[in-house]
Nucleic acid binder design. Sequence first.
DNA 1: TAGAGCCTGGACAACGTTGTCAGATGCGGG
DNA 2: CCCGCATCTGACAACGTTGTCCAGGCTCTA
Lengths: 345, 345
Amino acid sequence: MPETPRRPDSRYGNRPTMKDVAARAGVGLKTVSRVVNGEPGVTPETERRVQEAIDALGFRRNDSARVLRKGRTASIGLVLEDLADPFYGPLSRAVEEVARAHGALLINGSSAEDPDREQELALALCARRVDGLVVIPAGDDHRYLEPEVKAGVATVFVDRPAGQIDADCVLSDNFGGARGGVAHLIAHGHRRIGFIGDMPRIHTAAERLRGYRTAMEDAGIEVADTWVSLGTTDPDRVRRAAEEMLSAPEPVTAVFSGNNRVTVTVIRVLAERARRVALVAFDDLELADLLEPGVTVVAQDAAALGRTAAERLFRQLEGTLVVPERIELPTRLIARGSGELPPAD
Amino acid sequence: MPETPRRPDSRYGNRPTMKDVAARAGVGLKTVSRVVNGEPGVTPETERRVQEAIDALGFRRNDSARVLRKGRTASIGLVLEDLADPFYGPLSRAVEEVARAHGALLINGSSAEDPDREQELALALCARRVDGLVVIPAGDDHRYLEPEVKAGVATVFVDRPAGQIDADCVLSDNFGGARGGVAHLIAHGHRRIGFIGDMPRIHTAAERLRGYRTAMEDAGIEVADTWVSLGTTDPDRVRRAAEEMLSAPEPVTAVFSGNNRVTVTVIRVLAERARRVALVAFDDLELADLLEPGVTVVAQDAAALGRTAAERLFRQLEGTLVVPERIELPTRLIARGSGELPPAD
DNA sequence: TAGAGCCTGGACAACGTTGTCAGATGCGGG
DNA sequence: CCCGCATCTGACAACGTTGTCCAGGCTCTA
């Protein structure tokens, strides 16, 4: 004898479906669908009955099924480095707001600066069939996204460019910002200027270093090997790097810090020293103006990066965009004191 | 004559399906499914052929369909106040890490402290059939979640308790923390102590105020009306409040600040004044130790809040939890100088 | 060599929703 | 009184995947 087909394991706790609602209201399946979606062509009386059944059963439409049928998920994915980093919070929020304005939800994931994890995340998002993807690259090869892009997943890269693939990018002017920041120090009389930055494989780090070198070259200053230190943003690493260049026989009189994680450690090191060392830092910090001296920064607008990227993404989805573009947002030098200290030696 | 049934509008850009892969590899549908899911029972040779077809077509499993069939989405939702707030970034990241350890993705949304938006978001997440929901409440009535909870959506509230509904909560010891912080000021000789906090309808704000009042009462100090100011965290509002209590005929000699948004403004106001005013702030800040004086804070562990909540959520999903519980995490007083200033008058 | 048992592969239904299309109902006009 | 039309309703097939079940071919043993 035929068993009653048992439902698969704990199926949403046996949630009511449109079928259940239809049965209870004594109407057809499609009529329920019409009510739920506010489609026209339902008598007020019928609508009332259906609505009653919905409320009584606690019915909620299953968007998975809907997505399957309609082909659009009304959700976009964001792959970033670390949500806990104060730089990415506002960026993520900005993306979310644009998504919300377009009726979409945001799924995000942190790559922790690991290319494999970035790929794993991005592909998982694609498997969920997000309509679009905003990626802050950890890796430098994004060919794995080619089938997705071809299949119509809108894609925008932010903060760092895409690797090996032609796609929209929204970047800050890392090179120009760093160059300007270093030039600022030079203008205040410094010649021995240190640079402490992130790992050189990260595009922003490389660009900022290039800005530093260019500014130095512009001023005819030869950069000593000991003035440049690249690596992780781990506090110990940064601390060692800073102390080294400050304790050398010919110590640097100013430091350019490559990002916000580096900066907080550099500030700590400088605060411990008697001799005043000038500092210009890439990325603004919340209380930077209240330190003594205030921290001069090259600020980038994280929210604007996110917003611009998301807007571009939705324009891709509308189909009004065709040619991938590279957009560069300006940075802003904010002088607060630390960058205007004269060389002390 | 029967039209060829046209596919619904731009269906994922006509992505290949398992059927396509099966056709190309010359095998059955289910065999492809087996390969994709690493199920046993496929000859290496067959598997190779299928894998080739998958690569050639750029096939990626459609998780929407999978979810529909299996009933679990392997994703959880997080509704918080504002992702751009440095308090919520780490919390969100901690939730994400736990989710990742359980193979789940995180969808999050910002309620912007608006109860309606919180509800809209939470229900949208439920419609996507997230397996669980971590909510930082904006509103104080969560009965709208009852059908969802009943239907098996694991639910945990963080930072603030649930309203009108019996559910797991993970909170900081707001009352005890504030009470301790204010007692700290009293122990350093202060009697006229101001409290600037968030809107009283927010649970954390109310609890911290209660802690303040209790500490004052413990010390036998009567609180003057002008010492307490509650409202939005808008800088102008906070600034006015601070200036008022500092300029009164009998000005406060110390301020207790109710959260990190308030604190940054209070610090600015205090920095502008000649007279030194003591400060203890709820929530730690990134550079708090480098200010002059260092900011004494009552720190809560945002990551621990998120981690604890997420872990509890997955234990609900495993079915090992039954009774909703209220977990309270301790806070930590970190003395850095500003809280140890003597009353100056 | 026949039969039992295993291994591989495929046909089919179901998940919950929406689009299509055709049937039912009611109303007004001839 | 009947027909045509507009309005409302429902049956049915798809969406892409997975679970169930059975068929066919193979190996191994008696």
